[in-house]
Simulated scan of single mutants.
Amino acid sequence: MVAITLPENYGAVIAVALGAIPVLGFIQGAITGSTRKAAKVPYPHSYATVEQCKENPKAEQFNCAQRAHTNFMENAPQTMLFTLVAGLKYPQLAAGIGAAWVVFRCMFLYGYVYSGKPNGSGRQIGAFFWLAQGALWGLTTFGVARHLISY
């Protein structure tokens, strides 16, 4: 049997990984749904066509919202896991980096959907989420390696 002792301030880690990140996913889903309606893109179509985008700027905005949400869904699970695992050894640092990831993802979403820049290039303002995500991966790897070496 293995007992896991959680650090006293692990609540902040849980708040980020199992609170803020899923809430952001819900918000992105709601934004995607509202832009879908404005773009008049029916289900089950995932994206507006090139022709629809040429006729309706809202269709392009929907495509940007859809891609931002899909990118979030591709990256959120590993980020949540890295935050939870890294937080076992470095709770304050993991919670802080995880919170930074959420802020950068908000900037990414805003830039992608609302900046009005062509081809969604406004997303670049929040692309620093990759650095935060890499830092969480590195912190997780370092913490696990350190734990394994101590045995």
Rank of each mutant, 00 (worst) to 15 (best):
I4S: 01
E8R: 10
G11N: 11
V13N: 09
I14K: 14
L18A: 06
I21S: 00
L24M: 03
L24H: 02
I31W: 04
I31L: 15
T32G: 05
S34T: 03
R36Q: 01
R36N: 11
K37P: 06
K37A: 07
V41Y: 10
Y43R: 09
P44T: 08
P44Y: 05
T49D: 14
T49F: 12
T49N: 09
E51T: 08
E55I: 15
E55L: 14
N56W: 02
P57A: 05
P57W: 04
N63K: 12
N63Y: 09
C64V: 04
C64Y: 15
A65F: 04
A65C: 10
M73D: 11
T79I: 06
T79M: 08
L81H: 02
F82P: 03
F82V: 00
V85T: 02
G87C: 10
K89M: 02
K89S: 13
Q92C: 14
A99Q: 11
A99W: 04
W101S: 06
V103S: 04
V103R: 00
F104W: 15
C106Q: 02
Y110H: 10
Y112P: 10
Y112H: 15
V113W: 07
Y114E: 01
S115H: 06
P118D: 11
P118T: 04
S121R: 15
S121N: 13
Q124F: 15
G126K: 09
W130F: 13
A132R: 03
A135W: 04
A135S: 06
L139T: 00
V144E: 08
H147N: 12
S150E: 11
Y151I: 09
